[in-house]
Amino acid sequence: MFDELKRKFEEASAAYAAEHSVLRDPDWYVLKLQEEMGELTRAWNKLSGRGRNGGKTPGELRQSLSDETADLLGHVLLFAYRNDIDLASSIERKWKFKPDL
Rank of each mutant, 00 (worst) to 15 (best):
F2Q: 05
F2P: 01
D3F: 01
D3W: 04
L5M: 10
L5V: 10
K6L: 07
R7A: 15
R7G: 01
R7I: 07
K8H: 14
F9T: 04
S13I: 04
A14I: 04
A14H: 09
A15L: 13
Y16F: 15
Y16T: 13
A17P: 01
H20A: 03
R24T: 05
R24M: 14
R24P: 00
D25I: 03
D25Y: 07
P26F: 04
D27H: 10
Y29H: 13
V30T: 13
L33E: 04
M37K: 12
M37G: 02
M37E: 11
M37I: 07
E39S: 03
R42I: 01
R42P: 00
W44N: 02
G49D: 07
R52W: 13
G55N: 10
G55R: 10
K56I: 00
K56L: 06
G59M: 08
G59C: 02
G59Y: 08
R62I: 04
S64E: 15
S66A: 14
S66M: 11
S66K: 09
E68T: 05
E68F: 02
D71G: 05
L73Q: 06
L73R: 07
L73N: 05
G74A: 11
H75R: 04
L77M: 13
N83E: 12
D84S: 13
D86K: 11
D86Q: 08
A88M: 05
R93W: 06
R93S: 10
K94G: 00
W95I: 02
W95V: 03
K96T: 03
K98E: 10
P99W: 12
D100L: 05
D100R: 07
